[in-house]
C-alpha cells in the first residue's frame, strides 16, 4: 500500500486562488469575474495584480455569467468566481443558453460546495451542482480533492477550449497530492491498488477514502482507491480496469447520491461490467448548520462511512 503524507491542511479554494494568480502572470487572456465574494474565493491577488482584467459584478450572478460569455467573444478566457450554489442553481439557464449551448470558453469556478461550507446552513450548501452541470451537453465537470490538485486544475483548464465547471470547497483539508503536479482533464488517478473492492472518490472524500483504505487493510480487505477529479468526461477505462480485479465498488462524494459521481459510475458499470455498488453520498436531503466535521459525520461522508460501505459491498459479491 502506498503512503500519502498530508503536508499540512489547506483549503482547496486557496489552491484555486494560487492557480488564478499564476495564470494572471502567464496568460494575458485570462480575466476573472466575481460576485462580491473576492476574499472567499481567494481572488484578491489576481485583482491586485491585474485590476483591468478583474470584473467585480456585485451580487448579480446572472449578469456575471452573461458577461463571461460575452468576454469570450474577443478571445478572453473568463473565470467566474462565487459559491457553488450561486454558480449553478441560481444561474442555470444563463449557463445553459449563453455558455453551454453557445459553446463559450468560460470557466465556472465554484467554492463552498457541499455540506463542508458549514455553519451557513442549507441555503448555501449545494449538494446538487454536479448533477446540474454534468447534464449540460459539452460541459466538463471537475471536483478536485486538495490544494495542490485544485491549483493544478485551475491552471490546466485555461488551456482547454470549452466550458468547464470547477468545484472546490471552504474547509482546510489534507494536502497530499504532488506540489506542481500535472493535471490531465478526464484522466483518473489510481492512488491505491486493491484486490477486494474499488473505492471511487471525488473531492474532499478522496482523502477519506485513503484513510478508509488503511482501516480496511487492518480488517483484511484490500481496497483500491481511484481519485476521480473529472466527473465528466469520466475515465471509464480506469474504473473498469480496477473493477475487473475487485468485482465491487464504493463511490464516495460530497453530493446527493442522485445525479452525482455514483450514478455516473453506475452507468459505466451497467453498460460494461455490472457489479455490486454502494453509495457514500447524501441521501436526497438538504444540509444544515454545523461544523464541517460534524456534518460529514452526520451525513455519512467520512472514512468511517466508506469503511462501512466497503465491508457491506464486499459481502454482496
Amino acid at each position: 500500500m502506498k503512503t500519502y503524507i498530508d503536508t499540512g491542511k489547506k483549503d482547496t479554494r486557496s489552491g484555486f486562488g494560487a492557480g488564478l494568480t499564476e495564470l494572471g502572470k502567464t496568460n494575458e487572456n485570462v480575466v476573472a469575474l466575481c460576485a462580491d465574494l473576492t476574499g472567499s474565493l481567494k481572488m484578491d491577488a489576481f485583482k491586485a495584480n491585474h485590476p483591468e482584467r478583474f470584473f467585480q459584478v456585485g451580487i448579480a450572478e446572472a449578469n456575471m455569467m452573461g458577461m463571461a460569455a460575452g468576454l469570450t467573444i474577443g478571445g478572453k478566457i473568463p473565470f467566474t468566481g462565487t459559491f457553488a450554489n450561486f454558480s449553478t442553481g441560481r444561474v442555470y439557464d444563463q449557463i445553459r443558453q449563453s455558455i453551454a449551448y453557445s459553446g463559450k470558453n468560460v470557466k465556472i469556478c465554484a467554492s463552498h460546495a457541499g455540506v463542508t461550507l458549514g455553519e451557513d446552513g442549507a441555503t448555501h450548501q449545494i449538494l446538487e451542482d454536479l448533477g446540474l452541470m454534468k447534464m449540460l451537453p459539452g460541459m466538463t465537470v471537475i471536483n478536485t480533492c486538495d490544494y495542490n490538485q485544485t491549483k493544478a486544475a485551475t491552471i490546466a483548464i485555461a488551456d482547454y477550449d470549452g466550458p468547464v465547471y470547477l468545484r472546490f470547497g471552504r474547509p482546510k483539508v489534507a494536502n497530499f497530492t504532488p506540489e506542481n503536479g500535472s493535471f490531465t482533464i478526464g484522466k483518473a488517478v489510481e492512488l491505491q491498488e486493491g484486490t477486494d473492492v474499488t473505492i471511487i472518490a471525488t473531492g474532499h472524500l478522496v482523502w477519506e477514502a485513503l484513510e478508509a483504505c488503511k482501516t480496511l487493510q487492518e480488517k483484511g480487505i484490500s481496497a483500491g482507491v481511484i481519485n476521480i477529479h473529472t466527473i465528466k468526461p469520466l475515465d471509464a477505462a480506469a474504473i473498469l480496469k480496477s473493477v475487473a480485479i475487485t468485482g465491487c465498488v464504493v463511490t464516495a462524494e460530497e453530493h446527493n447520491y442522485l445525479g452525482g459521481l455514483g450514478e455516473s459510475v453506475s452507468r459505466i458499470l451497467a453498460e460494461n461490467h455490472p457489479v455490486p455498488q454502494e453509495f457514500v453520498a447524501t441521501q436526497d436531503t438538504f444540509g444544515e448548520s454545523g461544523t464541517p466535521d460534524q456534518l460529514m459525520e452526520k451525513y455519512g461522508l467520512n472514512a468511517a462511512a466508506i469503511v462501512k460501505a466497503a465491508t457491506k459491498v464486499v459481502a454482496r459479491k
Partner: peptide, 26 residues
Amino acid sequence: RIASGSLGQGISVAIGAAAAKKLNND
C-alpha cells in the same frame, strides 16, 4: 455570436463583449 431565445440575457453578453473590446484596445 450567441444563442438567444430564453429572454433577458443579451445585454449581459453585450457588456462582456464590450469589456473585451476595451481590453483589446478595439
